[in-house]
Simulated scan of single mutants.
Amino acid sequence: MSSQMLNRQAVSARAFGRAAGRSRSSVRVMASAKPLTFSKYQGLGNDFILVDNRHTSEPVVTPEQAVKICDRNFGIGGDGVIFALPPVGDTDLTMRIFNSDGSEPEMCGNGIRCLAKFVSDIDNAAPRKYKIHTLAGLIQPEMLADGQVRVDMGTPILEGPKVPTTLAPTQGSTVVQQDLVVEGKTYKVTCVSMGNPHAVIYSCDGEPIKIDDLDKELAALGPKFERNAVFPARTNTEFVEVISRSHVRMVVWERGAGRTLACGTGACALVVAGILEGRVDRNQVCRVDLPGGPLQIEWRQSDNHIYMTGPAELVFSGQLRA
C-alpha cells in the first residue's frame, strides 16, 4: 500500500468524522435554482443517487443536501449520493460519495459498480474497464458482456493501526479473532480495510454466528460496533455464517448508512477474514449471500488483489428541483 493511499485514508477518516458530526437539524433545502439531473442505481438493493459531476471538481451537492436527498420519505431515497468527478492523473474519472447521514466514506464496493454502469450508460460505451480515482486509491471496475461488473478492488490492508483499530494484534500486526465484549457478549473480531474499515465476526461466545438468530438484533447491535472506541474512524460490521468453504451468508451494519441490503467492500473483507481464520479456501471464488443477493469474491494469490463480481442496475432517472 503506497504512502499516498495511506495519506488519503487519513484525510478521509478525518473528513468522515467531521461530516458524521453534522446533525439532521442542519439540513437545508437545495438553494440552486437549476434542477439536479440524476439517475438512481442499485447493486443488490444497495441504492444510490448518481450525478454526472464531470464538469467541475467539487460535488454539486453538499453533505447536508445529500441527507435530504437520501431521505426515503421526503427525498429520492438512497444509501448515498455518488458523484462522477473529473479524472485525477492517469484515470478515467474520480468517485466521491456522501452517505445518507452526510458523512463521506473512502469508497463503496456496490457504489463503484453502480458508478461504472452509470458512466457506461450515459456515454453509451461498449463493455470496458475503468480506472477510477477514489479516496481509497485506484479502483478498476470492468463492465462485462453479460451486464455484470467485475471490480479489481486492490489489496486488503491488514495492519491493525492502518485499518484503523486499537485492538491488539494476534497474528503479527494483524487483528484476527480478537475478543471484543459488546453488551455482555464476547465476539471474535477480525479487522480488515478495503480502503474503508471493517470488523468481521464469525463467532460469538464460542458459537458460530447464525444469521437468522442475529438478524432481528442488528438494529440495536450495529451502532455498538460502529461507534465502539476501539474503532477510531468508526467501522462497518459484518456478521457471517459459514455454509461451506466457498459459500457464506452475511448481514451488515454500514458506517454512516446503518443496515443495508448489500456491502461490496464488506463482502471482500469477510472473505479475507474467513481465509485468515481458516474458514474459507483462498484458491477459489467464494459466493457471499447478502440480504439483497449474491456476490462472487476472489482473493487471488497471483497478485494479492481481491476481485468482486456482481450486478448494477438502473432504477430510474429524473430531475430534482429546489
Rank of each mutant, 00 (worst) to 15 (best):
L6R: 14
N7S: 12
F16K: 04
A19V: 00
A20Y: 12
R22Y: 05
S26R: 11
V27P: 00
P35L: 04
K40L: 05
K40C: 05
N46P: 09
D47I: 01
I49S: 01
V51N: 04
S57P: 00
S57H: 10
E64P: 00
R72K: 13
M95N: 07
R96I: 05
N99G: 06
N99A: 10
E104K: 07
N110G: 05
N110A: 06
I112F: 06
V119D: 00
I122G: 03
I122K: 02
N124R: 15
A126V: 06
I132F: 03
T134W: 05
L135C: 09
A136E: 08
M143C: 13
A145I: 13
D146Y: 11
V151Y: 07
T155Y: 00
P156Y: 06
I157W: 01
E159L: 10
V163S: 06
P164Y: 08
T165N: 12
T165W: 12
L167K: 10
G172D: 13
T190D: 08
P197E: 07
D213L: 13
L214V: 06
L218Q: 09
L218T: 06
P223M: 08
P223D: 07
N236F: 03
T237V: 15
V240T: 07
V240G: 00
S246K: 15
R255T: 01
G258K: 13
R259Q: 14
L261E: 11
A262K: 02
T265R: 04
A269R: 03
V271P: 01
I275Y: 09
N283V: 00
V285D: 07
P294Y: 10
I297T: 07
E298G: 02
Q301P: 01
H305I: 05
Y307F: 15
V315L: 14
S317Y: 01
